[in-house]
């Protein structure tokens, strides 16, 4: 009974945002000049309990490196279907990645958190490089990453 409720809650949490209205949201990620190769970035969302909900973007097309995006990899098991259609190239040092996505309104002010895992060849992996709550008030406010990301912001 408990597991049935949990399943229902989970499916509801996953389904409800899909019925809601959506709006274009621009995610801007500026990388530091860390002096390495292109960074792999995984942008994904967790819910209020910290459970993985879904991915928003994957920068870097080779799945063999995804295990270095360790938090994302742990949550998804490296399932590449999670990032089908939302995958682009890795991002060079000092570059700015700007992604515009049509995101559900229900994602904002509902306790969801956007995370970014980062990894660079020859350099240390950086899981949870950025973790920012998705709120309408937080839109446009830059957040600094821990290692490779100079700043991240989302604009609506």
């Amino acid at each position: 009974m408990k597991s049935l409720l949990a399943t229902l809650a989970l499916t509801t949490a996953l389904t409800l945002p899909g019925f809601a209205m959506a709006r274009p949201v621009t995610l801007t990620t500026i990388l530091n000049n860390y002096g390495g190769d292109g960074a792999y970035l995984a942008l994904y969302v967790t819910d209020t309990s910290g459970a993985y909900v879904g991915s928003l973007w994957m920068a870097g097309g080779k799945s063999k490196y995804y295990e270095h995006l360790s938090d994302w990899y742990r949550a998804t098991g490296g399932d590449t279907t999670q990032v089908n259609g939302i995958t682009g190239a890795s991002v060079g040092a000092g570059r700015t990645l700007e992604i515009t996505l049509d995101l559900a309104d229900a994602l904002f002010d509902a306790g969801y958190t956007l995370h970014i895992d980062a990894a660079v060849e020859d350099m240390r992996d950086s899981p949870n490089e950025v973790a920012v709550p998705l709120t309408t008030d937080g839109a446009g406010t830059p957040v600094t990453g821990r290692r490779y990301i100079a700043s991240f912001a989302y604009d609506m």
């Binding site: 949490a13 996953l14 389904t15 409800l16 945002p17 899909g18 209205m21 959506a22 709006r23 274009p24 969302v45 909900v53 879904g54 991915s55 928003l56 973007w57 994957m58 097309g61 080779k62 799945s63 590449t80 279907t81 999670q82 990032v83 089908n84 259609g85 939302i86 995958t87 682009g88 992604i99 515009t100 996505l101 049509d102 995101l103 559900a104 994602l107």
Partner: peptide
Amino acid sequence: NPAPAGTVAPPQNGLFGNGAPP
């Protein structure tokens, strides 16, 4: 490897609307 953006629709994970592609 995953399908690049623009080649298939984004995953139905409840995060995306049905509007413009990424």
